[in-house]
Design a protein around this nucleic acid. Structure first.
Length: 885
RNA sequence: GGGCGGUUAGCUCAGUUGGUUCAGAGCGCCACCCUUACAAGGUGGAGGUCAGAGGUUCGAAUCCUCUACCGCCCACCA
């Protein structure tokens, strides 16, 4: 289409896909080892293959893309490595649900066939989120895309397991773990979510052997009493001292329970006596080891009661059993009382099922030795957190770190590389499956059934994606990575463990800076969730507003460390902004139809407005870079938004219209337009990391580009200090203030836009007189003025409105138009404003403490203010007096 | 029980080192305008005791303490 046919309204749907294809085709996203450039690396937090794009991903990946594009334009070898996570439990659950529709359970298929189905599912749907991400415009190096279960990463996982095992940092043991009866697997401590819930506290009387006495215990899980093997009291507790060493008889079961004493028992809680269920409670487990108690497992892996309980409770669900036990206790008179009780219940983070503490064999990683160094590098600033406050959270966790349960009783994941000899029991930890037992030569070898926690592969992500453990050029060049962008909710799951792994296996930190993103909530502050249905589909938002608008809006709304309240409607901010710059571009393109852009003329015919906008532009570059360097991304968006909309469009483009429509020479027109194009292009480059599509579209249309040119590989603008000029700003501000003052009068007097007025400026300052004379055309155009008179000693014309700017009087004659009442009020308001400001500075200046203690420049400024206010006030009062006489 | 964050205009929120006209923006509202880039726009306007109380300071939205309310995280009180 020809330039003139550009649509009046920007239509993102027409251009976004086109440019993404173009960038891909030209290979601009690819990174390679380049000794002439410094690397800048980001690894993408790999989304789950089960995932669909959420606003959380949008925020996260927009931020990463902003940094990658910014650094790429700054001349770094920018490498952004994408990928996906196999998400063990989540994916297995999804596929189980899918086969359930065919009436199948995974056991029906068997391990091998089931895994085939999972891979099939992965091939079909596993890349959904990646495809969706591309709509956002992310500039990842897709040649480097990885998957946590691909061959290279699987090798890395094995390697790490073996190294840690050989170092004695991985061990197997019987422990109480968090068991999800639904997912049928153990969970790590941090995979359990504690949620407040109202329940009951049951008080149960246990008879004392050979006595009429009872000891009463309290519990929230009465069904576990069937597995009790002791009762514990505090040794200092006078109420129970006489019972220590005796036995209680477990109701419904009849077992003899020793009554033991232990400091850990809280005398204040409940009755002060605790039932001890070693196989089903982590505290009780510790107690049992200490006191050498019996362990009785009373549930199976589906949380049904097992054969170790009296017959009538066998094989029924835990909650069914709870009802029965309570009913029976009551019937036999063992139930002392029931209280309402609110407590935190652990739930599976994947399926929300209440977890059951469960005694089983699991694999663990010893965390203490890994945690120490990992804490140190954050405390001493080698790794910086933004916002910094997360350091404290991190520190607390690292100091209290507990061993990490890494085995999962599911099928989808990295199989644990441990082999058992069925004949002699030898345990072999090997890269390849051994043919025979190393010890006894038996061929009855069996691999551990369990798989590894998903995070056991993710924690290697910053270097496994660069083909570790191979020592290779990419790894040496791109590692350590520079920036990690992630949510604070996975600081322990992932961030902490990556730091540990980086230090342990690479001997270097995995990343230098960590940006913790905001949590996105809906407009009422509620978390986005599927069940509430308050989570907009980003693809719909992109369809409606455009990817640029979504990107811009979401980071505009996301101050560092603050939650953001999002609603689709807010994307109007970004859409309107896109449309604004689209039209600015259209304006320039339309005018460029008549003259050519001339690079070498862009600084010719400079006047005050040109110098002013160049000054503002360079300030903007400075501020924007600084904001990005300090991760105040929303500040960066505001800076470029204000510059483009207010400085460039509202003021500058309006001002140069005179020189475009009626230039003194053709050269002047060329110079002015070339300059406007140059400034606009520079601003587009600044904006490009935030809004890649529209900036490319406009940039390509502004003038002829070579095949393969792209704004995304243009150098990022740098500051040229010589343009930053406060004197120019001050003078320009004077002109602007006159315009604003006249507009204000016009506005309040309701003078129609079509009607021109005259302006009379009374000033005795020659510099300002010259300024006005020189730039009178700006005042005329921007304030809709016919004649401007500037002189000293001018009397206020009758029937005129007035204002004071920099101590100079401005009169707008309004014969027949002026509403004296309005003007009176306007002046009164203005007088009052100045009176307040004057009295405030007066108060300060008469305060001896202020004079004695404040720095001299502050005092000097205050004095100037005082003079200025006084003068202005005088004139305002004079004019007011004329008005009412 | 411990820790963290928030409270600024009707709504959503900025406000970096305490000090220039610092009390701001966007949306909404009111008025005038389809002015040859843009009505997804322009110009002007109304609107706030910066949650409350105390303190530090010549000076506080900004620093300190306490209080209230909202939200989050951590913790084995059965």
């Amino acid at each position: 289409m020809t330039k003139r046919e550009l649509a009046k309204v920007y239509n993102p749907q027409e251009v976004e896909d086109k440019w993404y294809e173009y960038w891909l085709k030209n290979g601009y996203f690819y990174a390679k080892v380049n000794p002439d450039k410094k690397p800048y690396t980001i690894v993408m937090p790999p989304p789950n293959i089960t995932g669909v794009l959420t606003l959380g991903h949008v925020l996260n990946n927009t931020i990463q893309d902003i940094y990658i594009r910014w650094k790429r334009m700054q001349g770094y070898e920018a490498c952004w490595i994408p990928g996906t996570d196999h998400a063990g439990i989540a994916t297995q659950n999804v596929v189980e649900k899918a086969i359930a529709k065919e009436g199948l359970r995974r056991e029906d298929l068997g391990r091998e066939k089931f895994l085939e189905r999972v891979w099939q599912w992965k091939e079909e749907y596993g890349n959904t989120i990646i495809k969706q991400l591309k709509k956002l415009g992310v500039s990842c190096d897709w040649k480097r895309e990885r998957f946590t279960m691909d061959e290279g990463l699987s090798n890395a996982v094995k390697e790490v397991f073996i190294r840690l095992y050989e170092k004695g940092l991985i061990y197997r043991g019987k422990y109480i773990v968090n068991w999800c009866p639904r997912c049928h697997t153990a969970l790590a401590d941090d995979e359990v979510e504690h949620k407040e819930q109202s329940g009951k506290l049951w008080y149960i009387k246990y008879p004392i052997e050979n006595s009429e006495e009872f000891i009463t215990v309290a519990t929230t899980r009465p069904e576990t009493m069937l597995g009790d093997t002791a009762v514990a009291v505090n040794p200092k507790d006078e109420r129970y001292k006489h019972l220590i060493g005796k036995f209680a008889i477990l109701p419904l079961v009849g077992r003899r329970l020793p009554i033991i004493s232990d400091e850990s028992v809280d005398m204040e809680f409940g009755t002060g006596a605790v039932k001890v269920t070693p196989a089903h409670d982590p505290n009780d487990y510790l107690l049992a080891i200490k006191h050498n108690l019996e362990f009785i497992v009373v549930m199976d892996t589906y949380a049904k009661m097992n054969e170790n309980v009296p017959e009538k409770y066998r094989f029924i669900d835990r909650y069914e059993a709870r009802k029965e036990v309570v009913k029976d206790l009551e019937a036999y008179g063992y139930l002392a009382k029931v209280e309402d009780y609110t407590h935190a219940v652990g739930r599976c983070y994947r399926c929300d099922t209440v977890i059951e503490p469960y005694l089983s064999d699991q694999w663990f990683v010893k965390m203490k030795p890994l945690a120490e160094k990992a804490l140190q590098v954050v405390l001493d600033g080698q790794i910086k957190f933004y916002p910094e406050r997360w350091v404290k959270v991190y520190e607390h966790w690292m100091r209290n770190v507990r061993d990490w349960c890494i085995s999962r009783q599911i099928w989808w994941g990295h199989r644990i590389p441990v082999y058992y000899c069925d004949d002699c029991g030898e345990i072999m930890v090997e890269r390849e499956e051994p043919k025979s037992c190393k010890k006894c030569g038996s061929t009855k070898i069996r691999q551990d059934e369990d798989v590894l926690d998903t995070w056991f592969s993710s924690w290697l992500w910053p270097f496994s994606t660069l083909n570790w453990p191979d020592d290779n050029a990419d790894l040496r060049y791109f590692y350590p990575t520079d920036l990690l962008v992630t949510g604070p909710d996975i600081i322990f799951f992932w961030v902490a463990r990556m730091i540990m792994a980086g230090l342990e296996f690479m001997g270097k930190i995995p990343f230098r800076e960590v940006y913790f993103t905001s949590i996105i909530r809906d407009e009422f502050g509620r978390k986005m969730s599927k069940s509430l249905g308050n989570s907009p589909d980003p693809l719909d938002v992109i369809q409606e507003y455009g990817a640029d608008a979504l990107r811009f809006t979401i980071v505009y709304l996301a101050p560092l460390g603050q939650d953001i309240l999002f609603s689709t409607k807010k994307c109007e901010i970004g859409r309107n902004f896109a449309n604004k710059i689209w039209n600015a571009g259209r304006f320039l393109i339309m005018n460029l139809d008549e003259v050519e852009y001339k690079e070498e003329m862009k600084f010719n015919y400079l006047d005050i407005a040109d110098k002013w906008i160049l000054s503002e532009l360079n300030k903007t570059i400075k501020e924007l870079n600084h904001a990005l360097e300090t991760y105040r991304i929303n500040d960066a968006t505001r800076t470029i938004y204000d510059f483009l909309w207010h400085d460039f469009c509202d003021w500058y483009l309006e001002i140069i219209k005179d020189r475009i429509y009626s230039p003194e020479s053709k050269d002047e027109k060329i110079a002015v337009l070339s300059r406007a194009v140059y400034i606009f292009e520079t601003a587009l480059k600044l904006l490009h990391p935030f809004m890649p599509f529209i900036t490319e579209e406009i940039w390509q249309n502004l003038r002829d580009r070579k095949e393969g040119a792209s704004i995304m590989i243009e150098p990022f603008p740098t500051v040229d200090e010589k343009w930053i000029n406060d004197e120019i700003s001050k003078n320009m501000k004077f002109i602007q203030d006159i315009i604003v003052a006249v507009r204000s009068i016009r506005g309040e007097m309701n003078i129609p836009h079509t009607k021109f007025c005259d302006v009379i400026i009374n000033t005795s300052n020659n510099d300002r007189k010259d300024l006005v004379n020189e730039y009178v055309s700006y005042i005329k155009r921007l304030a809709r003025v016919q004649n401007v008179t500037v002189s000293s000693g001018i009397k206020r014309p009758k029937f005129s409105a007035s204002a004071v700017v920099s101590g100079d009087e401005i009169f707008v004659p309004l014969e027949g138009l002026i509403d004296l009442e309005i003007e009176r009020k306007r002046l009164e308001k203005e007088i009052k404003r100045y009176e307040t400001m004057l009295s405030e500075t007066e108060r300060k200046l008469s305060d001896q403490n202020f004079i004695n203690r404040a720095p001299s420049d502050v005092i000097e400024r205050e004095r100037q203010k005082y003079e200025n206010f006084k003068l202005t006030l005088e004139k305002l009062r004079q004019n007011y007096a004329y008005l009412i006489e």
